[in-house]
Design a protein around this nucleic acid. Structure first.
Length: 324
DNA sequence: TACCAGGATATGG
DNA sequence: CCATATCATGGT
């Protein structure tokens, strides 16, 4: 049985940015990209389902697409509905970009980015649990190393589903990770602390001492204060959960090194801004801090990719390496 | 080779 | 409250 759904987000909304993000950023092993669709497996209770999303994008750049979802592997309608709700969330399908674009219209840099990336939304994590695990793994290490650590976790305990002869792996839930030991992760290049943080958090969620559902009813600051009580969770990780997991539009990760580098780079600062300088600087972003941050991250990532490609061409102009 | 990476904690002042 | 050491490894 294949369940189908159609989402109708508000314009501007460009589906291709999600594909580009998955292709160039972390978590790519969780997704299967083809010409016009993205697919990913999810654990929903005892079931593992596969969701495919395809955009019917009009030619006009200012027209919104229809997002067609299919859910396979669900034993009943209610499970499929939950899977569709997860993707409705991941795709930010209920968000409107207009408030963000209006708020930064007077900022030459950000307005330029909203024009360059018109219709780009946040691609969210499937739930706050996944967001927290990814945040803990991402602490302090560079993005590419973080991705290899995430991949190891999924290979260790992700659940597999085969659909039409093709096998997908779903990001592990609290129970799957709770069954691991810190040593299991140590064997895959996790530091002792990082391994403990990941396993202990999963066990807390699995046994019910950590209540992530309660976050929905909390303000940003209340949720952050709740999360930072957990071992291994500082403000930055809590902010990641609110932004990437809960999809809060107004979250400013002011201490984040990527955001600080982006401000220095795009606004021509001589020095890397401090956390407080970021807060002052972002006063105009009120209500859409997450989007401003996401656009700056994306643009910085694109600059880095261009620089890396240029360097690669220069060092290997004929495909063979030069030694200087 | 140092130093940095989309940090967190523990410890000492 | 602020400064510093420690963690562990990959990228540059």
């Amino acid at each position: 049985m294949i369940y189908t759904y159609t989402l109708t987000p508000a314009a501007p909304y460009r589906f291709r940015y999600f594909k580009e993000r998955v292709e160039t950023s972390s978590n790519s092993y969780l997704y299967r990209i083809s010409d016009d669709q993205i697919a990913r497996a999810h654990i929903l209770g005892d079931d593992t389902v596969l969701v495919r999303v395809r955009a019917e994008q009009p030619d006009s750049p200012d027209a919104a697409p229809l997002l067609h979802l299919t859910v396979e592997g669900a034993p009943a309608q209610d499970v499929a509905d939950r899977a569709a709700a997860v993707w409705r969330h991941m795709l930010s399908a209920d968000r409107d970009l207009a408030p963000f674009y209006n708020a930064v219209a007077h900022d030459d840099i950000l307005r330029g980015l909203t024009e360059r990336y018109k219709g780009m939304h946040l691609l969210l994590d499937s739930d706050p649990f996944e967001a927290m695990i990814l945040a803990i793994i991402g602490q302090q290490v560079n993005l590419s190393f973080a991705e290899s650590l995430k991949k190891s976790l999924v290979e260790l305990c992700g659940r597999h589903i085969t659909v039409g002869g093709e096998t997908f792996v779903a990001f592990p839930g609290p129970e799957e990770i709770a069954r691991l030991t810190a040593d299991d992760l140590r064997a895959h290049k996790y530091s002792q602390r990082k391994a403990e943080y990941v396993v202990d958090f999963a066990r807390g969620v699995a046994e019910g001492s950590v209540d992530l559902v309660a976050l929905d009813a909390m303000s940003n600051e209340e949720a952050i204060q709740y999360l930072v009580k957990l071992r291994g969770v500082g403000r930055w990780s809590a902010e990641c959960v609110l932004m990437n997991g809960l999809g809060r539009p107004d979250l400013l990760p002011a201490a984040d090194i990527g955001l600080r580098n982006a401000i220095r780079h795009f606004y021509g600062w001589e020095h890397q801004p401090t956390e407080q300088e970021v807060r002052d600087f972002a006063a105009d972003w009120k209500g859409c801090e997450s989007y401003a941050t996401y656009y700056l991250w994306t643009a910085l990532g694109a600059e880095k990719a261009i620089a890396a490609a240029r360097k690669k061409r220069k060092s290997t102009p004929t495909g063979k390496s030069f030694h200087s």
